[in-house]
Write a protein that binds this DNA or RNA. Structure first.
Lengths: 340, 340
DNA sequence: AACCTATCTGTATACGCTTTCAGAATCCAA
DNA sequence: TTGGATTCTGAAAGCGTATACAGATAGGTT
């Protein structure tokens, strides 16, 4: 079939083990032999078989990606491509490849992960989300399989290497920003409440509201899916209030797009009638009209650091877990108005 | 270390080969033994080692994805997540996993592909783009490695299974649509000219223009990258003409967003001053204001069919190459105006 | 010349699974 | 009871690589 180490060995007139050592660049092989073997490899067009190598080696040079369970929906959010780009960049630096298993239901995803882990298809896993009581995360911990999380683990955060923004602080600061613009009725448009990021930000929001001496009103809090439809629903609920908010803190730019177009339909304009501040700063947020004031959470870097952390876990298993906080930054555009 | 086939064999009091046959669901094994073995597997929490299996089997149950060489940029285009979602859906149906190798430069990508192929990391490859004289495509053909292409191969199209829209026809029809609205000065905002899709559409556009008895003007043709910046550049060039177009046929919604925001800045409005018709119908195209009239090219299905075709290639190597044409559909929204 | 190091290379086995081939067990007809 | 067909199972040889261990070679010392 294809060229093996033995063919190379024969041609170079050495033993297979020698060839293997040349591949591994083992210092015990003389330069002369190395050259000879390399020539033979070149001549035959030899390429090592990864499966054989993995088997002997117990390592695959691949890392697995776990997407949130509604993989199809989520993939539409530019957050994921961008975070994957970050992961992929780091992975590539160390010659790791990416492996994705997919599925539509919760169970399928879980099964996919089990196969990745038990089948030794990957050396470690990056979880692209963090939510309350996640089965997959529990499983990985039980197996003590190397993994890192993007977002804060709901429990055992100390013993799991994770990468996130300080979402509590971010939400608090952003709420304070809106307060500083004179808004006192600030709505919170959150995503799925099972996601830790939603919880953290809600707490930050609450903190800021209370610090300002305002009362925290449940009716100003709305939770929807992270997509544009979510944004649309949210607006309807909030505007139906007798005293509707003058500003919204929205968890995702995509939801903001939904909010924006719904407001448009209702004949309300941003920021004149209502201000919008959202998170993620995806590429398109500067192109909408009005352009969105948004928190740049450095998605690329989240991915990059997550992969980096994972590779550390893999390469030095002893190391204690750590947390990396990726900085965030408010990008002011046109969707917030000073009402003072 | 972990549980192997031997452990299961020992517990079930059979030979390893029997266990292997149970896994493969070989009909030559009696139901009784199967049950016994399955219980043992269950009890021990056995999972087959994929590397060992691949090695013995010469198959990996994984398919590789090749992104265009500027992987980082391209990933930002919603086209890719969506096409990957399609691929992933099909792959999952047949229990295949996805494998991505990445790189920043042309050479890195190529090296990645070689490693995937020679290292037997994947059973086949889906090329997510098609362009003129592509090194990777040539390589795959030389190696007669199973692969399919999304888009039309520049050469040897007959011998390569590929999935695309009929882009020539699509562009022709869309140009005719604009003509039917009364536009006679139609600009063509194309993407990278190395991409076959750009060429096909340009030809379709030209055909429609000539059929209508209009003259084909070079100055109405602009080529930019497929991103928003591209859109911005394009507008500036076209509006500088002494007789600027009244309608633009834009190759990608993302470019249209760029066009839209640039026009905004220049104080021109769509569709009053200029009409916009673009391709892809990405999720956000209905949310912009005005919402975009766009050609839905069924990105998901492109991916789905590409994966399906690939799996056929893999599973029955003899089969002749085929072409699948995915239908397209014009989605009329607000960005085109009837000027008759 | 004999011996010892230091350096390099080869032999053999393991990694976990699949598969060929042969052999054992079972069953039924003669 | 024997023979032959049929069904099921096991032993063993790969798949292509890594590595422990032993062996060979070269170089230097006494």
């Amino acid at each position: 079939m294809s060229v093996t180490i033995k063919d190379v060995a024969k041609l170079a007139d050495v033993a297979p083990s020698t060839v293997s050592r040349v591949i591994a660049n083992n210092p015990r092989i003389s330069e002369k032999t190395k050259r000879k073997v390399k020539e033979a490899m070149e001549y035959l067009g030899y390429h090592p078989n990864f499966n054989a190598r993995s088997l002997a080696n117990r390592s695959t040079q691949a890392i697995g990606l776990v997407m949130p369970s509604s993989a199809d929906k989520a993939f539409q959010n530019p957050f994921f491509p961008e975070v994957i780009r970050g992961i992929s960049t780091m992975a590539h630096e160390q010659e790791y490849a990416l492996y994705m298993s997919t599925g539509n239901t919760e169970d399928e995803i879980f099964e996919g992960v089990v196969r990745m882990v038990q089948g030794r298809r990957v050396d470690g896993i990056v979880m692209l989300y963090s939510r309350v009581d996640d089965r997959i995360m529990c499983y990985l911990q039980e197996q003590s399989f190397p993994f890192t999380v993007i977002g804060k683990p709901f429990k055992n955060a100390d013993s799991i290497t994770h990468i996130d923004n300080d979402n509590f602080k971010a939400a608090q600061e952003m709420t304070e920003y809106l307060l500083s613009l004179g808004h006192e009725r600030i709505g919170f448009v959150g995503g799925n409440l099972n996601l830790v990021v939603t919880i953290d930000r809600l707490l930050g929001y609450e903190k800021a509201i209370r610090n300002a001496g305002l009362s925290y009103k449940d009716e100003y809090i709305v939770h929807e899916e992270f997509l544009k439809e979510g944004g649309q629903e949210a607006v309807k609920e909030l505007l139906a209030l007798e005293n509707p908010p003058s500003a919204l803190l929205v968890m995702d730019d995509l939801m903001s797009f939904g909010v924006l177009s719904t407001l448009n339909e209702l004949g309300l304009s941003v920021p004149e009638d209502i201000s919008l501040l959202s998170f993620n700063n995806v590429m398109l947020s500067e192109l909408s009209s009005p352009s969105l004031t948004s928190v740049d959470i450095n998605i690329f870097q989240l991915g990059y650091e997550a992969a980096k952390g994972l590779l550390e876990c893999i390469q030095s298993p002893g190391k204690p877990a750590k947390r990396v906080a990726v900085p965030f930054e408010l990008i002011e555009r046109q969707s917030c108005k000073n009402v003072k």
